[in-house]
């Protein structure tokens, strides 16, 4: 009986086995990469807004504190979005005729709110409270990045559960002294672990990793 397969068939067999595994691996890698990309988590993607509001201008150029507009960030779950009244405090005089601010004037005249697109939107099954984070020494920039350098607003972090847990498991790696929580330009000098361990004790920060901490 003659040989059914010539010698080259060995090579084809090996190539198809490893190649097949490779294609399956590639398939899962593509799913992972797409799932992990800004296409889903919007990291670094500026969102369309009714007004081209620049945090960079208002924070860096004008030196306005976060809390001037986000008034409830220290006391409530929601950081607070400024009513149009707050915008008009300055813009009744400054850039009062600018076409860029026409929607703001319209909103003030009609008493209808501006419909901003949420940039940091958690799923509804997650409980989150700004005030406890701010008061326990989680700085604005820890989650929101250098907002004072963002001409348009984008998401700085993924908001994925593993990102939340990285801090909930090891708060000492992220905690900031309370007096610098709202400071955009503060950089820690020295060892974060030493300072973090001290602050975790001082602020009585607990490692809250139970499911019901956030999913309640």
């Amino acid at each position: 009986m003659p040989q059914l397969f010539h010698r080259g068939a060995n090579t084809i067999a090996r190539a198809s086995i490893y190649g097949g595994l490779g294609i399956i691996g590639l398939f899962f890698w593509v799913i992972y990469a797409v799932n992990d990309s800004p296409y889903f988590d919007f990291v670094g993607v500026p969102r369309p807004q009714p007004v081209q509001f620049s945090h960079k201008h208002h924070v860096q150029d004008d030196g306005i504190d976060c809390r001037y507009c986000h008034t409830t960030v220290e006391t409530q779950a929601f950081a607070g979005m400024p009513p149009t009244h707050t915008c008009m405090t300055c813009h009744s005089v400054l850039f009062a005729d600018s076409p860029a601010l026409a929607p703001v004037r319209q909103s003030y005249a009609d008493n209808t709110p501006l419909a901003w697109t949420r940039v940091y939107d958690l799923p509804d099954y997650v409980y989150f409270n700004h005030s406890i984070h701010v008061n326990k020494g989680v700085a604005c920039i820890t989650c929101h990045g250098r907002v004072d350098e963002m001409p348009l607003m984008w998401r700085q972090k993924t908001l994925r559960m593993n990102w939340c847990l990285s801090c909930h498991r090891s708060p000492e790696l992220f905690v900031t002294p309370r007096e610098h929580v709202f400071d955009m330009t503060w950089v820690r000098d020295g060892d974060q672990r030493d300072m973090g361990a001290r602050l975790v004790k001082e602020y009585d920060i607990k490692r809250l990793t139970d499911c019901y901490t956030c999913h309640r």
Partner: peptide
């Protein structure tokens, strides 16, 4: 004061805050 007033009134209350320097009354 430094959050809400200083943008116009200035940190010492002289009335020369950053918003005033940009043209506010």
């Amino acid at each position: 004061f430094n959050i809400f007033c200083a943008p116009c009134h200035g940190r010492t209350g002289d009335g020369d805050g950053m918003v005033v320097r940009r043209g506010f009354r």
